[in-house]
Write a protein that binds this DNA or RNA. Structure first.
Length: 475
RNA sequence: GACCCCGUCGUCUAGUCUGGCCAAGGACGCGACCCUUUCAAGGUCGAGAUCGCGGGUUCGAAUCCCGCCGGGGUCACCA
């Protein structure tokens, strides 16, 4: 039986989870689920100056929102680098004892000077190995460097890019442990991946260049290599690295913009990965079909329009009760009251779901269900409050009053009958009603709206419009 | 600058490994029409890619080889 797949997502909590990180998390999660393996969440918080508890919470929240559940990780202890310092220390000591690493007392200033010189000569800076054979005593302040073979090459066998070769002239004896005793990122990653028995390292393409250094470390440590897969990056519309400049980039920014999680997941999955011509993937679909073989090699540009299309798709596909529940916080932010009747709200969302790309949009469009029009759109009144408007409102009011119930079908029958009698088009009566109810000429199917609003409210709005036609000078 | 990765419609992509089924398919967006109580949604149709460019191999190349150009990434006692 093959060894079980173990993958990890290892964000550093220096900011909210951005879409690039979210997609890396998704690919790891999907790979784990597809292979019935284990998805581990590890927090890379060795950079204490920039890491915060708030960001850790924020990242966990974003992953949870997307439904990316982890099998190992916080809140269980031991999945934060700051909790693993002894482990790095032990491995560092071992490398030193075995001669695979050595103490270096070169100062940062001295190295900076060398770096500048190299740059002026147009060369890649490499640590010259000053302390390599010096046996710097432990009593002196020193950093720990990995001893790397001066020549030869290191090959990365990448699941997405194939074989990538790096010449050792490009590598140098990099720092494992800083003078202050803290381990560096590249060292922690290797130790963590080794001790957590990670089988597949799936991460952003920006780490490909670091991989040969890490491979050297695996070898020094005497551990087998995991498989590597470097997924392409996500770029902004100008093909530069996606940043705030390009608008929303954090997962919660999209959540707050009313994108539904199903859509975020679906969009991110299709950004860089494909499964034939399919576009629609539920979380389960992704878990069932995801494979590294169909992850592309080219960076992808983030396209908000397609995300919103998917968001509408999933809004349309969502069970009404769930949709109503999802909408609630957005009604609140829009300053609208929380309806006590959840079933009623579900019906309201049914009328709005194919007209809303986001929940924010849906909440906006739902406004008239909760509030009477603050004003009537001048263009609408100019067009529909003609001389006959007042009388037509009167007729509508009279007939609606006589109706015991306002099922959409009975309302429609009433309107059609009246339109026929007056020898006008149904649209004229419908638009007159829209103006009265929403203040505009746009709404979901008006018979449904009337039914949802109920008789007293509908009548009140029709009467208000009717008297407004008088005030306006129409007869 | 050095090294590494990448390059198919505006965008996401199928196809590239195993050359012919591709005078390049799907999706978003865009346009038109149909449907229709408005707006949408839906349906149909359409515009849109000489497969970055130039050579080569081959009967035949988006697919193989070479060169070039363009974009991105990495070069820290950051992660």
């Amino acid at each position: 039986m093959p060894e079980p797949v173990r993958v990890r997502f290892a964000p550093s909590p220096t900011g909210h989870l951005h879409v690039g990180g979210a997609r890396t998390a998704l690919f790891n999660w999907a790979f784990a689920r597809r292979h019935h393996g284990v998805f581990i969440l590890r927090i890379e918080d060795t950079d204490r100056s920039r890491s915060t508890e708030e960001y850790i919470e924020s990242i966990l929240e974003a992953l949870t929102w997307m439904g990316l559940d982890w099998d190992e990780g916080p809140p269980t202890a031991g999945y934060r680098q700051t909790e693993r310092l002894e482990i790095y220390k032990a491995q560092a000591d071992r490398l030193l004892a075995e001669g695979r690493a050595y103490r270096c007392r070169c100062t940062a200033e001295a190295l900076d000077a060398l770096r500048r010189e190299a740059q002026q000569r147009g060369e890649t800076f490499r640590y010259p190995g000053t302390c390599r054979d010096l046996a710097v005593p432990a009593s002196e302040p020193s950093a720990l460097r990995l001893r790397i073979a001066a020549d030869g090459e290191t090959v990365v066998e990448d699941a997405i890019h194939g074989r990538v070769t790096f010449d050792h002239t490009q590598l140098d004896d990099w720092i494992l442990v800083r003078t202050d005793g803290t381990p560096t990122y590249n060292f922690c990653v290797v130790v963590d991946d080794v001790t957590m028995e990670i089988t597949h390292v799936i991460r952003g393409n920006d780490h490909l260049s670091n991989t040969p250094k890490q491979i050297q470390c695996y070898e020094a440590l005497g551990y087998p290599l995991p498989a590597f897969a470097h997924i392409p990056m996500i770029l902004g519309s100008d093909k530069s690295r996606l940043s705030k400049r390009h608008g929303a980039t954090s997962v919660q920014a999209f959540r707050d913009a009313g994108i539904v999680p199903e859509a975020m997941l679906n969009y991110l999955a299709r950004l860089g990965w494909s499964h034939g011509d399919e576009e629609i993937f539920s979380r389960d679909d992704i878990a069932r079909h995801f494979d590294l073989a169909h992850v592309g090699q080219a960076a992808a540009i983030f396209d908000r329009a397609k995300l919103e299309w998917l968001s509408m798709h999933w809004i349309k596909a969502m069970p009404p009760e769930r949709l109503a529940a999802q909408l609630m916080p957005f009604l609140d932010s829009a300053g609208l009251p929380a309806p006590a009747d959840r079933a009623w709200l579900a019906r309201v969302t049914e009328t709005l779901r194919e007209r809303s790309h986001t929940l924010v949009e849906m909440a906006e469009k739902a406004t008239f269900y909760f509030r009477r029009p603050a004003a009537y759109d001048p263009q609408a009144t100019a067009k529909f409050w003609t001389g006959a408007a007042h009388d037509r409102y009167a007729l509508l009011i009279k007939r609606l009053e006589a109706q015991a119930d306002l099922h959409p079908a009975t309302v429609e029958a009433l309107y059609r009958e009246l339109a026929a009698q007056l020898e006008v088009k149904l649209v004229d009566l419908a638009q007159l009603t829209r103006v009265a109810i929403t203040g505009t000429t746009v709404s979901p199917p008006i018979f449904e709206v009337v039914s949802l609003l109920g008789k007293p409210e509908t009548l009140a709005r029709l009467r208000a419009a009717q008297s407004a036609t008088v005030n306006r000078g129409s007869r």
